[in-house]
């Protein structure tokens, strides 16, 4: 090392109290004798403080972001009702394209719901991290959700059903009517058991490190959403993965589905806001789980990267209790 660097090392040892006693007192007299050395020590001392403060600042900024997010969530609760109204209008337009719009507006239609409920404690962090792009929906109703980016995603009722048993392929046929699809992209869905602790741990750690893409990947286990974007346009794939947890029930299921999203021409489409519709049937896999089913859908129009900011979480409640769900096999 250069001489200057060696001096810095010496000063550092002195400041951190890592210098043996005798050496330290000798160094101290050196400091008092030399104005230049004294100045160097002072500068380095200040810097140590600055470095420490810089770390605290990061913590404080993070705490503030968390705090203001929670504040927004509260506000969101209040304005939620008005969003439902706007979204319902959009829904009207798309459902009856052939009829005149003015007539439709006066029609009474069951409103769609966007619910932002309080989340179970162990998953609360995850939702928080997704910046509010989380929605709890009831699968027996049509729903439109609005993402942070302003995109609207329509989720028809019974899109998610529990017909996986023995009928995987049929339930995944989403290609029907593909020609009307202007932006057929494949989105990765993730079925996630909230009690899956290892996954949560990795997730939290990555988020603490602000490594969001890693966080996302850890949640998706080994799946890299990017690669599926390319390969799965023609095929659907479901994999079940036991990640070696001690509790066999703590299994994380992962499904990569060909899910069509249709961009709908609509008056609500603006530069920043587009309406998409999820199509096809998406099965629940972990139907035995008492936990709610949580699905991660990556937001639309995100060509190059998948990040936390562009993901939404849809949570489906009451699917098993709800008898109105018509299963695929019953239809036949």
């Amino acid at each position: 090392m250069r001489q200057e660097l060696e001096l810095m090392q010496k000063i550092e040892q002195y400041l951190l109290g890592q210098m043996p006693g005798g050496e330290a007192s000798a160094f101290e007299s050196e400091i008092h004798a030399s104005k230049e050395l004294y100045e160097q020590v002072e500068l380095q001392k200040q810097l140590m403080k600055g470095i420490q403060r810089s770390a605290w600042r990061q913590d404080a900024v993070q705490a503030f972001e968390k705090y203001s997010f929670m504040q927004k969530l509260w506000k969101w609760g209040y304005i939620g009702t008005s969003v439902v109204a706007v979204v319902s209008l959009g829904y009207l337009y798309t459902q009856k394209e052939s009829t005149e719009k003015k007539e439709m507006l006066s029609e009474k239609v069951q409103p769609q719901t966007i619910v932002n409920e309080s989340m179970p404690a162990d998953t609360a962090n995850i939702y928080q991290l997704l910046n509010g792009n989380t929605f709890v929906i009831n699968s027996s109703r049509d729903t439109i959700v609005k993402t942070k980016e302003g995109n609207l995603i329509e989720i028809p009722k019974e899109l998610f059903n529990d017909t996986i048993a023995g009928n995987t392929k049929d339930s995944l046929l989403t290609k029907k009517g593909a020609k009307e699809i202007s932006q057929a992209k494949i989105y990765t869905l993730h079925f996630y058991t909230p009690s899956y602790k290892d996954s949560l741990k990795k997730w939290k750690q990555s988020v603490q490190d602000k490594n969001y893409s890693k966080a996302l990947r850890s949640m998706l286990s080994s799946a890299n959403p990017k690669s599926y974007l390319k390969t799965s346009s023609k095929e659907q794939e479901i994999s079940e993965k036991n990640t070696g947890s001690e509790n066999p029930k703590d299994t994380m299921y992962k499904a990569v589905l060909g899910l069509n999203m249709e961009k709908i021409d609509n008056d609500l489409n603006t530069k920043n806001s587009k309406l998409y519709k999820l199509k096809g049937k998406i099965p629940f896999i972990n139907k035995t789980s008492k936990n709610k089913n949580t699905i991660l859908v990556f937001d639309v129009d995100n060509k190059n990267k998948t990040s936390i900011d562009t993901a939404i979480v849809i949570e489906i409640v009451d699917k098993l209790k709800n008898k109105s769900i018509i299963t695929q096999s019953e239809k036949k």
Partner: peptide, 22 residues
């Protein structure tokens, strides 16, 4: 002022110092 100095450094330098000292 010392804290501000940290922002005059490149990202890697800053990260390195933070990892080591804090």
């Amino acid at each position: 002022l010392a804290e501000k100095t940290m922002d005059t450094l490149g990202e890697r330098c800053k990260e390195l110092l933070l990892l080591f000292y804090t």
